[in-house]
């Protein structure tokens, strides 16, 4: 397990250096998007409309933060990841069209995203689910917020982060997925486990 420091913008060369299980800290810009923002990005892509932020060589974070209004500004109190699998049906297209390099979330993603990551040079990193205060501590400031009409959790928040982590590379650009490997190992054991507990 290697420890790696990454900075945005992330080049294809640097993303291809990552392997599943690597331990990463990320500095620079991360952009949040969850269900509604993904749907809207897809609509913009389909209608060939300009998206008001750039994901090229950036990190996209599956997160709906808890924020607090403070005068004219927003304060980020808690910003852990949300379940990435809900974005599975969109993510391959987002990677292909918008050039995202790193996707941060929790719980892993499916084969469509894994294939797109291999093809276009991107990776998936897991941030510990629920560790939301720890995540917020690594957010230095809010650079911008877009699509606030989607509601606070669904809006697109653009954060400047410093050594955001611990991140674990769950899917790399070489076609490997730690989630699929853990699952395959689990499925091999499954019948034995069930039979053992039934006979108890």
């Amino acid at each position: 397990m290697k420890k790696i420091e990454l900075h945005t913008p992330i080049s294809e060369k640097n993303i291809r250096k990552l392997n599943v299980g690597d331990h990463v800290f990320l500095s620079g810009t991360i952009i949040t998007a969850r269900d509604s923002a993904h749907r809207r990005m897809m609509k913009h892509i389909a209608e060939k409309r300009k998206i008001p932020f750039s994901l090229k060589d950036m990190a996209l974070y599956h997160c709906g933060p808890l924020v607090k209004a403070h005068g004219d500004e927003w304060l980020v109190l808690a910003a852990g990841p949300t379940t990435s699998m809900r974005m599975e049906s969109f993510e391959a297209e987002i990677i292909r069209n918008l050039g995202v390099r790193l996707i941060i979330g929790k719980g892993g993603m499916g084969w469509k995203t894994r294939e797109a990551m291999k093809r276009y040079g991107a990776a998936y990193a897991a941030f510990t689910g629920g560790a939301a205060v720890l995540a917020a501590k690594r957010i230095k400031r809010i650079i911008d917020v877009k699509w606030l009409d989607l509601g606070l959790p669904e809006a697109v928040w653009i954060f400047e982060v410093d050594r955001f982590g611990p991140l674990i590379v769950g899917i790399d650009s070489h076609g490997r997925s730690l989630y699929e490997e853990v699952r395959a190992k689990t499925l091999r054991r499954l019948n034995r486990i069930v039979e053992d507990v039934i006979s108890e």
Binding site: G107, T128, G170, L178, Y179, E181, V182, K185, R189
Partner: peptide, 9 residues
């Protein structure tokens, strides 16, 4: 089962 914390094993 080996699913483990956050499903990472």
């Amino acid at each position: 089962t080996g699913v483990g914390p956050m499903g990472l094993g």
